[in-house]
Each structure stands twice: as structure tokens, then as C-alpha cells.
Design a protein around this nucleic acid. Structure first.
Length: 780
DNA sequence: CAGTGAGCGAGCTTCCGCTTGACTT
């Protein structure tokens, strides 16, 4: 056994560091936190100074056992967890869980995984910072109290199994409020006027495009302007040329990597993290959960060399970036390639693409600004007050643009070519007072746009901006709010809309009406009905927690604890008093929340028509629950919401089920069920995807039925005359055995096509009982 | 798999942050 045990958080890091330290040192990993509050109970003694009850979770017992063996045999245990609040707490929990003697424990920290940094750390050990640990305990206990007191209120007042928390509930709030802004948005139309002039250049003619400085509210105004332009003279009134520059973006943090991978590569935030994890484990990149934009000196030096060799001295601009995000703890470096001289990473295609992105971002961050020349040409219209303006941009020195340009949410189509060019057009050479020949002027009707819906990545950006959540939780938080069905990530088809066009061409004005698609969305986050109801409930009763500044406010208090200026349990006490009493009051006095909304009266019976969340989702209800006659119910369709459904749309839902026709002497019924629209024939169900159950014809229904019958025949690999219940079928995950309602996996050494009935039954009999794991859904 | 919308009320659900495997269909 080695004399020195070093414990870090990540096993990949342990491996690297062991290489630096050599003989006498063994480096092991804690795999993150090693103790936590019990999951089944509050585990915080609210009567007794908020004393937390910690345990070693089942999946950490092995880790602790192994660490203990090494620790007991070591002279010194070096706790080398991350230098932030959580890392300090991990060190303290390790000391407690391993029952380490104070005298043999040394706490060390480093921000970069380089030999010099590690050796320097070893020379400068310190003790565990108990104040910082206490700040973490306050964070942990606060989150537990909020999560475990709010969630049960939701079970009681809204629906079982729901959840609420400091981070997730605010994330949902952002999406709900954005959706309402969009619903309330009234677009306004205006007329944008663009002129195209012909400019002779040598013996060629080039075009100069210019926008009118004013927009017109009304078609009549646009028309009036075009009339003035008939026979007007257009001349260059002013020419302005001014230098400008563009600067590169800072190296990647978790959040900016997620945003760029989403915009440039179309990855979800979870996907980005999975791919980055693989690159990290392969030693290709530095740690991927970080809020720091800092590069180590050796990395900057490597970047300098790389830029000098590939592009030349004038492209080098080594610089340090300052983090802008609230609450950044900077325990790691920025995300960068481990070796900048490696331009590719190997691995699969998704890893290569992400690596290339990280490489370019890192290199470009150490490159010079791009020098631009902006040109503004003002064109006078003799018969009108307004001017046309043409903008041009010329890149005088490309600098970092040679490698990489950050995308914006608006232009997510940009690709990462080798040279990311600025987009503005080049202008033809013109001189002051030059008279221009008009080709045409177009006035087109445009519309103001509602604020954009969130993507996963833009939500992460917003959360980070508010200081809510940490690099390790951005992706899981986004998954949680979708798993709870508060939010859905969806595509939406756009709608066609008309817009007007006015052309001035050859001295005549023509008008036309054209069509365009508007409102199409791809992979955007939409709040569900339950998401909105839960949000409104929480906002009404727990304003403090739902405030966008709540996290930032408590962070200030955690800082005070870390500075030793405040006791952690005192801080929690001050929070818990008012919080717990609002929990109690809400529990006792608040109504059940179902988002109920009155839509009108049923014309046939005069009974009220309401919409609300029912036991199985959003519904329309005609009639009162207390009426003698039972109310009628209908489920809302996908894309309909209790918040926006109209009376007419609601009444349409009662037109189902309907008879769509007959086939083989049996009726075809079209309806919508638990799993979406279907047609039913001879007691069998056939899902319909493209067709509308309200419209589907007899002919189309028969097509659907026949298509399903054909697919079913093709699914069957083998059947047995003696026992019709047993079948060998081909499914999504390969070939399997189906007996009644149960399915069984076929062992690898058996050829599915040769299975006998006896073998099938044997496999079924020997199949392990179904495990009730985390991933299996339990029956209700 | 696809009617429902509540009725006894057992026994369950839930947080955030730090880390990776070991799982399944």
C-alpha cells in the first residue's frame, strides 16, 4: 500500500494525476458526493437547529469501502476535491465517512490538471474550510426543505407525483410566462421599402440594394411614397466609411457549449453532455462541467504556437477572459482540447464534430480582432423627404474570423466552414452626387414578431443569466421539467398568411398579394396545461420561491456563511419560519387547482361548458358534477390547451366517436383515445397518424386497416399449431418471444428461427422476474 | 394499449448538485 492517498472527484482525473505523482502516491476517485440526506424522509430536524441526517447511499457503499482500505493504510490522505462549495463539502463528508483522523488529513486544491499545478498544490496544503462546508449544508438543506415541502402540497392540491423546487419551478415559470406573452402578442403590419439601383462598373452593371430609412404603417402611405418616386431623381447624398472591429468569444463553459452545439450542430443539451463526457474520458478535452472561461498558461502557450504556425504572428492575441455569469465558482478550467495540436479527436462522428467546435472556439479566443470597414451610403430621393440607406461591410483583416464565428439564436443555419465570413454585402464603388438609375422599388408588408419561444439551450442561457442552476444540473433540469410533463419539446407547423407587395417598375405601380408560412417552430419548449396550472398555483402561494431573484438572494447569504459572517442554521431558520407557515396556510386554506375555465352554455341543454384538468388530463365537461344527470366529458386534443381553447373548438370534440363507414359488414368507428386518434373495426384498434378522425373517409379507413394487417403478418417470425398463444415476433429491439401478454428475450446462443415450442416455454419459465427498478414504470 | 373524469383511501410520489456506470425495452 502506498503512503499517500489522494482523493479527487472524477476517475478520469484520478488517472491523469496518478501519472504526474508517481511512486508513493495512489490516486482514487469519490465519484462525486459520498453522503447525502435520506431520500425517503425530510432528513432535516426542523425542531433542532435543522440538524441534517446524512447517509451513504447504497450505490456509494462500495466506493467508501474501497477508499477506506486505502485510507487506513496511508500515512496521509490528500483531499483533492474541487475548489468550490460542493467540493469542500465532499472533502468534509469524505473525512466523516472514512472516519479519518485529523492529523493525517490534508486538503489541497488546483484549478488545472497540469503537473506543475498538482505539485504546487501538494506543497501548499490547508485544512478543510468549515465555513464553506456550512454554506454547502445551507444550500443542501434549503433545497431539501423547499422541494420536500412544496411537492406534497402539489400532490394534495393538484395531482400526485408532481414536483417543485428552487430551480425547476422557476425554469417552468420562464416558459409559461413566455408562452403567455406570445399568446397576448398582437402583431402589427408595416411596409418595408427596398430599392434596387443599377450601377455601371467598367463595362458591367452591378446592383445596389438600399432600404428606405422609414417604415410605413399603411399601404396607402407606401403607395403614396411610390407615386412620389415615379420620375424622381436618385442621387448619392452622403458616403460614410468607418472602421470597426469584431472580437472573438471567450472559451467554452458548459452553458455556452450547450448553446453553440445546439445552434451549430443541432444537439440537445443532454446529447452535448454525453458526447463531451466521452471526449473527456478519452482524454481529448478538459472537464466539461465548468463555469470558468479561464485557460491555463500552458494551454494559452499551446494556442499561441498553433496560431503562429497555421496563420502567422499577426493572428495571435493571447488574452484572459473574465466570467460574466452570476455565482460562477470557477473550480475548473474552461472547456478546451487537452492538446491543441490535435485537430481531430477520433471517436464517432458526433464526437469529432463537437471536438472540432471546441478546438475552433479555443483557438479563436486567442486570436486577434477582425478589422472591418463599414460603409453607409445615403441616397436622396428628389421628390420625397425620406432617404434610402445602403450598408456594406468589408473585412480588412479577418483575424479570428478565419477560424470561428459564434452563432446567434436568430441565425441558427450558419455552418462551421473553415472561414466564417461576415454576412453584409460588398457595395459597388459610387461617388458623391452620382445619379443612380432605378431598377425597381418594392414595398412589402412585414409583421412584427412575438418574442421567441425557448429552446433547451436558450433556456439554459437564461437560467445561467439569473444565476439559477449549476453546470452539472442544466441538462438534468431540462430533462426533469419534460419528464414531469410541465413542458414539452415540440415542432409546430406554421400557418399560411397573406402579405401585400407593391412594385414600382418601369414607371408603373403594381400591387400583388402573396403567401408565406409563419409561426413554424422546431424543437421549442411549450408549457403543458399541467405546467401552467402548477406554475400559477406556486406563483400565487409561494411568491418568494418563484421570484426570479430568489436564488441570487440566497446565494448572497450562502456567501456570508462561507465568509464566516453568519451561522448556517440561523440563516435557514430565518428562511424556514415564514416559508413553513405559508406552506401550512396553503395546505389548510387553498382550493384545489384545476385551471377551470367557463366557456359558455351548451345550446342543446343550456348546461355550462367548462374546461379543466381532469384525472387523466385536460378535458371539456358539459354539465355540473352535482347534476342528477352525469356530465358529459371529452378530452382535449394534442396542441389544444385549456388556456386557449374556444367554445366552438370545445363543442367540436363531442362529435367523436363517429361512424366512418362499414367494412366486411362491420362498422368503422373513428375516435381519439388515450394514445391518440384511431379507427376501430371488429374490436380492433388502428392508430391513425396523418388523418383527422373527424374527417377520415371509409376508403381511407380501410387503407389504414389493411396496412396494419399487412404489417402484423410481417411481424410474425414463427407460430405453433399446438399453442396459438406462443409466437416468435420481430419487434423494435429485435426478435423476441411473445406468450399472451408477456414478452421474453431470446438467449444469444439460440437461433430464433429454429426455436421449438418447448424451447420457448422453457425460456419463459426461466426468465428472471421483472425487476422494479428506477426505470420500470409501476402499475397503478 | 385505446371506455374513464370518483369512490374506500393503502402506499407511493418529491429537491439540488457532485460523479459514472449498469440497466431496460
Amino acid at each position: 500500500m502506498e503512503k499517500n492517498l489522494v482523493i479527487v472527484e472524477s476517475p478520469a482525473k484520478a488517472k491523469t494525476i496518478e501519472g504526474f505523482l508517481g511512486e508513493g502516491y495512489v490516486v482514487k476517485s469519490s465519484f462525486g458526493h459520498v453522503r447525502d440526506l435520506l431520500t425517503k424522509e425530510l432528513s432535516v430536524d426542523t425542531e433542532n437547529n435543522f440538524d441534517p441526517k446524512y447517509e451513504i447511499p447504497a450505490d456509494k457503499k462500495k466506493v467508501i469501502d474501497e477508499l477506506k482500505k486505502y485510507a487506513d493504510n496511508a500515512e496521509t490522505v490528500w483531499l483533492a476535491t474541487d475548489e468550490d462549495r460542493e467540493g469542500e463539502a465532499i472533502s468534509w463528508h469524505l473525512k466523516e465517512a472514512l472516519k479519518l483522523d485529523e492529523s493525517k488529513v490534508k486538503r489541497i486544491v488546483f484549478h488545472e490538471i497540469t503537473k506543475t499545478a498538482i505539485l504546487k498544490a501538494i506543497e501548499n496544503p490547508r485544512g478543510i474550510d468549515k465555513n464553506l462546508v456550512d454554506a454547502q449544508q445551507a444550500r443542501r438543506v434549503l433545497d431539501r426543505l423547499v422541494g420536500y415541502e412544496l411537492s406534497p402540497i402539489l400532490w394534495k392540491k393538484v395531482k400526485p407525483s408532481l414536483s417543485a423546487g428552487r430551480v425547476q419551478s422557476v425554469a417552468v415559470r420562464l416558459i409559461v410566462e413566455r408562452e403567455r406573452e406570445i399568446n397576448a402578442f398582437q402583431n402589427e403590419s408595416f411596409y418595408k421599402v427596398v430599392a434596387e439601383f443599377a450601377v455601371p462598373e467598367g463595362d458591367k452593371i452591378t446592383h445596389l440594394q438600399a432600404n428606405l430609412s422609414e417604415r410605413f404603417k399603411l399601404e396607402s402611405e407606401a403607395h403614396e411614397f411610390l407615386t412620389k418616386c415615379q420620375g424622381a431623381t436618385f442621387s448619392i447624398k452622403n458616403l460614410e466609411v468607418k472602421p470597426s472591429k469584431k472580437s472573438p468569444s471567450a472559451p467554452f463553459t458548459t452553458s455556452t457549449l450547450q448553446q453553440e452545439a445546439s445552434r451549430k450542430l443541432g444537439y440537445s443539451v443532454a446529447q452535448t453532455m454525453v458526447v463531451a463526457q466521452k471526449l473527456y474520458e478519452a482524454g481529448k478535452i478538459t472537464y466539461m462541467r465548468t463555469d470558468s472561461v479561464n485557460l491555463s498558461d500552458s494551454a494559452s502557450e499551446a494556442a499561441r504556437k498553433e496560431i503562429e504556425t497555421s496563420y502567422g504572428d499577426q493572428y495571435v492575441n493571447i488574452q484572459k477572459y473574465q466570467t460574466k455569469s452570476k455565482g460562477a465558482q470557477e473550480a475548473h478550467e474552461a472547456i478546451r482540447p487537452t492538446y491543441l495540436d490535435q485537430h481531430t479527436a477520433g471517436g464517432d462522428n458526433s464526437e469529432q464534430r463537437l471536438y472540432e467546435l471546441i478546438w475552433k472556439r479555443t483557438i479563436s479566443s486567442q486570436m486577434s480582432d477582425a478589422q472591418l470597414e463599414k460603409t453607409v451610403v445615403t441616397i436622396d430621393v428628389s421628390a420625397a423627404e425620406e432617404n434610402f440607406i445602403a450598408n456594406g461591410e468589408v473585412v480588412k483583416f479577418d483575424g479570428f474570423l478565419k477560424v470561428y464565428l459564434e452563432s446567434t439564436d436568430e441565425s441558427n443555419t450558419e455552418t462551421i466552414g473553415n472561414s466564417a465570413k461576415a454576412e453584409k454585402p460588398l457595395l459597388p464603388a459610387v461617388t458623391l452626387n452620382q445619379i443612380l438609375n432605378l431598377n425597381e422599388i418594392t414595398a412589402s408588408e412585414r409583421f412584427t414578431k412575438h418574442p421567441p419561444r425557448f429552446t433547451e439551450a436558450s433556456l439554459v442561457r437564461k437560467l445561467e443569466e439569473l444565476g439559477i442552476g449549476r453546470p452539472s444540473t442544466f441538462a438534468p433540469t431540462i430533462s426533469t421539467i419534460q419528464k414531469r410533463l410541465y413542458v414539452v419539446k415540440e415542432d409546430r407547423e406554421g400557418e399560411e398568411r397573406d402579405y401585400k407587395l407593391l412594385h414600382l417598375r418601369n414607371g408603373a405601380i403594381e400591387t400583388a398579394v402573396k403567401q408565406e408560412i409563419t409561426g413554424a417552430e422546431r424543437a421549442k419548449l411549450f408549457p403543458s396545461d399541467i405546467g401552467m396550472v402548477v406554475n400559477d398555483f406556486l406563483v400565487e402561494h409561494f411568491q418568494n420561491i418563484m421570484d426570479y431573484n430568489f436564488t441570487a438572494n440566497v446565494e448572497l447569504e450562502f456567501d456570508a456563511i462561507a465568509q464566516g459572517q453568519k451561522q448556517w442554521n440561523k440563516m435557514i431558520d430565518e428562511f424556514y419560519g415564514p416559508f413553513h407557515s405559508s406552506v401550512k396556510i396553503t395546505e389548510e386554506t387553498s382550493e384545489k387547482a384545476s385551471g377551470e375555465r367557463m366557456l359558455g352554455d351548451d345550446p342543446e341543454t343550456g348546461k355550462p361548458v367548462i374546461t379543466r384538468i381532469g384525472r387523466y388530463g385536460p378535458i371539456i365537461q358539459i354539465g355540473d358534477r352535482d347534476d342528477e344527470e352525469k356530465p358529459r366529458f371529452a378530452s382535449l386534443r394534442k396542441n389544444q390547451s385549456i388556456e386557449s381553447i374556444t367554445f366552438e373548438e370545445a363543442m367540436d370534440l363531442f362529435k367523436l366517436p363517429r361512424t366512418a363507414g362499414t367494412y366486411e359488414d362491420k362498422e368503422i368507428i373513428a375516435a381519439i383515445g388515450r394514445f391518440g386518434p384511431y379507427v376501430k373495426h371488429d374490436d380492433k384498434f388502428y392508430s391513425i397518424k396523418e388523418d383527422d378522425p373527424m374527417e377520415i373517409s371509409e376508403e381511407r379507413s380501410i387503407e389504414v386497416i389493411e396496412a396494419k394487417r399487412k404489417a402484423d403478418r410481417e411481424r410474425v417470425v414463427k407460430t405453433y399449431e399446438e399453442n396459438k398463444e406462443v409466437q416468435v415476433l420481430k419487434g423494435r429491439y429485435g426478435i423476441y418471444i411473445s406468450i399472451g401478454k408477456n414478452n421474453y428475450k431470446i438467449p444469444k446462443d439460440k437461433e430464433p428461427r429454429d426455436l421449438t415450442l418447448e424451447e420457448c416455454l422453457e425460456i419463459a419459465a426461466n426468465a428472471p422476474a421483472k425487476k422494479k427498478g428506477r426505470f420500470t414504470k409501476k402499475k397503478s
